[in-house]
Design a protein around this nucleic acid. Structure first.
Lengths: 198, 198
DNA sequence: GTCTATACCGAGATAGAC
DNA sequence: GTCTATCTCGGTATAGAC
């Protein structure tokens, strides 16, 4: 049992560390040695858990996707789509420092791995599409079925752009400014045609 | 004279190629061999023009900055800030395919080189700040001095986000959708307090 | 000024001892 | 299952012939 646990511990530690370092410096920029050293796992031992670096990358993508799944479930407790949209925006503000330091942890990874081609590229596209699809559902549920896709793209773009600019300037306060604007936008939109719950 | 010209030609070709490949695959991902081969300059010869890869990177940044300077000058022909803001947005739409393929050529480079530290990082920050400052001036000139900075950040963020999402999905039509939205936003804003020319 | 050959290093990956 | 030693390759950079 101890053995099994220490196995999963190491594996988990490797993924965690890879996730953190990849967010800070980019995945390709991060060497396996860096990851192993930071995770306190002997360098060569990494290959016991992951056959290639790409496989570790997949694990990181899956972890990020799971992260978003977790977010969705939290949102499930809220009763209206409007509340969920506000909660989404709030979650952006809560991560302002993280965003200013390394950009968006989902789309940053996605656009980086996109070039790799193969299974990784395909899988990483979900990092973009999952949040987009979820936002689209919310707008639909909020009675904006007509251009739910457009609204979702707009909100998500605004989020991405804010992350990019905050990262570029290193200023987390820009996130706060933009979040306020986004909230006003959602509020105005919801007044237009306020329909239903869930 | 022929000799001198072929020198500058090679140097120029190297920068051009580096710029193109860096936009497509990222600067660090692009090897000097790739650049030299594509530019049809012998590999080792690169070091006659640039002592290090970083120096070539600087040249690329400078070229991108010059590109934006050129844009500013074109905009100078327009008589009102409002027109210039619309022209900015139009220029985004014109580059939709480029954006869908490789993201924003300014900020993409900036955020990539940011990690490098040193002179390159400092210089590349201008890729973000120059457009931001210019947008701020336009909003000021258009009579929105109060929150010109906020408006500039908003517009530029929207641009960046659109580029990121279009790149992630590979769909240039998202740019068109967002551009329409941005134009409406500017138009509404200008009605609010329409003041002056230049 | 131009180009070739090569040194050098760090990264990913493997073999195999324990 | 765990870890060390090592191979290989590709990239930056240099020395030096022409």
């Amino acid at each position: 049992m101890t053995t099994v646990q220490s196995q999963t511990d190491k594996r988990t530690r490797l993924i965690d560390t890879a996730m953190r370092l990849a967010h800070a410096h980019g995945f390709r920029e991060t060497s396996l040695s860096d990851i192993a050293e930071t995770a306190e796992v002997p360098i060569g031992n990494v290959y016991y858990y992951f056959k290639t670096k790409g496989e570790l990358g997949e694990a990181v993508v899956e972890r990020r996707l799971a992260e978003f799944q977790g977010f969705k479930e939290e949102m499930g407790h809220l009763s209206s789509a409007k509340e969920r949209l506000f909660a989404f925006v709030d979650s952006i503000e809560r991560r302002k420092d993280q965003l200013a330091r390394g950009g968006c942890q989902w789309v940053g990874l996605c656009s980086e791995l996109r070039l790799n081609g193969g299974a990784l590229a395909a899988k990483s596209a979900a990092l973009l599409n999952a949040p987009l699809a979820w936002l689209e559902e919310q707008f639909q549920a909020a009675g904006h079925g007509r251009d739910a896709r457009g609204l979702a793209v707009h909100l998500f773009s605004a989020f991405q752009g804010t992350a990019a600019v905050a990262h570029g300037t290193g200023d987390p306060e820009l996130v706060v400014m933009e979040v306020r604007r986004l909230k006003e936008w959602i509020a105005a939109l919801m007044k237009t045609e306020n329909v239903t719950t869930s």
